[in-house]
Design a protein around this nucleic acid. Structure first.
Length: 487
RNA sequence: GCCCCCAUCGUCUAGAGGCCUAGGACACUUCCCUUUCACGGAGGCGACAGCGAUUCGAAUUCGCUUGGGGGUACCA
C-alpha cells in the first residue's frame, strides 16, 4: 500500500497571515488535493514573546477565507494532536533525551557572550562560523561546576557524530521535489541547539518531532528553509526515522527585489481583502507565481488548478509580486460576480454614503453602470460619489476645461430648458439626448463635447457612468439643480 | 566573510539539443468600437545576463564570471 500523502501548513503567529505563507499553504493544499492526501494546520508558536492570539485568529480567518480548509488542526483536532506547538512542550524533551542517550546530542553550558566571542573570532579569520564543540566532552565535574555557577544547559545536536554514523562522506545530499539534488558539506554545519536552556525546543527540533509524529509525508515550504533541511535530515537519521520528502519553493519578492514588507504595501492576506481584492483573484494570482497552467488559460479556480498541479513543474526561482497583473485579475473576477453578489461585496466600501437615500432598484442600476472599470472593490467609493448628496464637487480640471468653456455656456441653458419638459426614463433620455447631440453637431459642436458639458455639470467630472442611467438615477430635480448651479 | 539556491521580454511565465527568425499573460503603445472613462476587438514594442566548452546544431548540457535571493541565532 502506498504511503498516505500528508502535508502541512505551519505558520508562526508572529504576524497576520503573510501572502508568502498563504502561497506556501496554497501549494501544499494543491499538492494534497492532487494526490488525494491530507492537509494539516499546525501553529508554530514556540516563541511565546512574538505570539499573540490576534495573530492566531487572523491566520485562521485568512486561511479559511482563502478556502484552504484543513483536515486536521488546532480547532478541528485529529489523530496526531495537539496541533499547537506550545501545547506539545512535554513531548520534545523526551526525544531530546533520547538523542542525548544515544550520543547524538549533548548539554552545552556556553553563555551567549562566549558564543558571540567565538563567532567574532571566526569572522575575523574569514572562515565559516561553526560552533567549536567545546562542551561536547564535558566531564560530570565540569558540568557540576557550571551548574553551581547558575548556568542552565541547552542541548546541542552532535553533527559530527551523526555524520560518522550515517554517512560515508561529509556531503549530505537530498532530492528536492522542485529543485532536484541539493548538497551541503556537513562539516560546515555547527552543532546546533535543539533544546534551549529554558526547556523549550528550537524551531528545527520541534519541526522534526512534529512532522515525524504527525506522519508528514511531504514538506513543501519556502527556499529559506533549505539550510534547515540538512539539520532536520540529520535529526531524523539520529532518531532512526525516515525523513519526509522535501520541496522548496522560490520566494516572493517585492518589485525592488527585496523581501516583501509593509513598505511595499499590503503583505497580509487580510490587508488585501480590506483593500478590495477578491480572495479568489488573490489565490489565482498567487498560484501563478511559480506555476503555470498546461493549457495557458490563466483564470482558474482552485479545483481546476489542483487537477493540473504538479509539484515538479513548479519554478525554482524567485518571483516578484507585481500589482499590475493582480489588479487585472481582480477586475476579471469582479466582472464574473453576479449583480446581487457585487452589491453585497461593495457595501463595506460605501459606508460613507447613505444607501437608504436611494431605492434598491437605484442601487442596482448604479452598480450596473459603474462596475465596468473597477479593478478593486474600493474603487467604487470614488466612482459613485456623485450619486449622493445635493451638491457635487467639481475638480479644477473639469471646471477649466469644460464648465468655463464656450460649449457649456451654450449647451447647458438649453439643456435645462429642454430637460425640464422631459420624461426621465432611460429609454426616453436616450432618444432625447441623441436629438440634442444631433442638434449641436450641426452647429459644429462634437457630440462628445455636448455630453461633456452635461456630465461635468451633473457629476463634476468628465468621465463616469453611462449618462442616461446617471441622469435617471439622480432624477430630474437634482439634475436641473446641479446644472443651474454649474452655470 | 563563509555556505547554499536562482538566472528567457519591465513583470509572471512556455520552452526539457534541431518544431524558436523564442510562444502566452499583465503592463506599455497604435488603431477600431463609442455620449466620456472604461470594457471589448485587431495590431505593435519587448527577452534567452556575459564569456568559454561540448555538439553538425544550444535558450535548452558543462565550466567560469556577473547579478539577484536565502542561510549563517538558545527567531521561526
Amino acid at each position: 500500500m502506498a504511503e498516505e500523502v500528508r502535508v502541512r501548513i505551519a505558520p508562526s503567529p508572529s504576524g497576520n497571515l503573510h501572502i508568502g505563507t498563504a502561497r506556501t499553504g496554497l501549494f501544499n493544499f494543491l499538492f494534497a488535493k492532487k494526490m488525494g492526501g491530507k492537509y494539516v494546520l499546525r501553529i508554530e508558536d514556540t516563541d511565546a514573546e512574538r505570539t499573540s492570539q490576534a495573530y492566531i485568529d487572523n491566520i485562521f480567518d485568512s486561511l479559511k477565507a482563502l478556502g484552504l480548509e484543513w483536515d486536521e488542526g488546532p480547532d478541528v483536532g485529529g489523530p496526531y494532536g495537539p496541533y499547537t506547538q506550545s501545547q506539545r512542550f512535554d513531548i520534545y524533551p523526551k526525544y531530546a533525551q533520547k538523542l542525548v542517550d544515544a550520543g547524538f546530542a549533548y548539554e552545552c553550558y556556553c553563555t551567549p557572550e562566549e558564543l558571540e566571542a567565538e563567532k567574532e573570532q571566526s569572522q575575523k579569520n574569514k572562515v565559516a562560523h561553526v560552533y567549536s564543540g567545546r562542551c561536547r566532552n564535558l566531564t560530570d565535574a565540569e558540568k557540576e561546576a557550571f551548574i553551581k555557577e547558575g548556568r542552565k544547559p541547552a542541548i546541542r545536536f552532535d553533527v559530527q557524530k551523526a555524520q560518522k554514523a550515517f554517512h560515508d562522506s561529509n556531503i549530505l545530499t537530498f532530492k528536492d521535489l522542485v529543485k532536484g539534488e541539493l548538497h551541503q558539506d556537513m562539516s560546515l554545519i555547527g552543532d546546533f541547539v535543539i533544546m534551549k536552556s529554558n526547556g523549550t525546543p528550537t524551531y528545527n527540533f520541534a519541526v522534526v518531532i512534529d512532522d515525524m509524529l504527525m506522519k508528514m509525508s511531504h514538506v513543501i515550504r519556502g527556499e529559506d528553509h533549505i539550510s534547515n533541511t540538512y539539520k532536520q535530515i540529520l535529526i531524523y537519521e539520529a532518531l532512526g526515522e525516515k525523513a519526509p520528502e522535501f520541496g522548496h519553493l522560490g520566494m516572493i519578492l517585492a518589485p525592488d527585489r527585496s523581501k516583501l514588507s509593509k513598505r511595499h504595501g499590503a503583505t497580509a492576506v487580510s490587508e488585501f481583502v480590506e483593500k478590495g481584492y477578491l480572495i479568489d483573484a488573490l489565490v489565482n494570482f498567487v498560484a501563478l507565481l511559480g506555476w503555470s497552467p498546461s493549457d495557458g488559460e490563466e483564470i482558474k479556480s482552485v479545483d481546476e488548478i489542483a487537477k493540473d498541479f504538479r509539484i515538479g513543474e513548479v519554478s525554482s526561482s524567485n518571483s516578484i509580486f507585481e500589482y499590475d497583473k493582480l489588479n487585472w485579475m481582480n477586475s476579471q473576477y469582479i466582472k464574473k460576480l453576479s449583480l446581487e453578489e457585487l452589491k453585497e461585496r461593495l457595501k463595506p466600501f460605501l459606508a460613507k454614503y447613505d444607501l437608504n437615500s436611494i431605492t434598491d432598484a437605484q442601487y442596482s442600476r448604479m452598480v450596473e453602470v459603474t462596475r465596468e472599470p473597477l479593478t478593486i472593490l474600493s474603487d467604487i467609493t470614488d466612482a459613485v460619489s456623485y450619486f449622493f448628496g445635493d451638491d457635487v464637487e467639481v475638480d479644477e480640471e473639469t471646471k477649466a476645461k469644460v464648465l468655463d468653456g464656450e460649449v457649456a455656456k451654450k449647451v447647458l441653458p438649453d439643456f435645462i430648458e429642454k430637460a425640464t419638459g422631459w420624461d426621465f426614463t432611460e429609454e426616453n433620455l436616450h432618444e432625447k439626448l441623441e436629438e440634442f447631440r444631433g442638434f449641436y453637431k450641426e452647429q459644429g459642436i462634437k457630440p462628445k463635447e455636448t455630453m461633456w458639458a452635461i456630465r461635468a455639470a451633473v457629476t463634476g467630472r468628465t468621465r463616469g457612468a453611462d449618462m442616461c442611467a446617471t441622469l435617471c438615477i439622480l432624477g430630474k430635480d437634482k439634475v436641473i439643480a446641479r446644472c443651474k448651479k454649474a452655470l
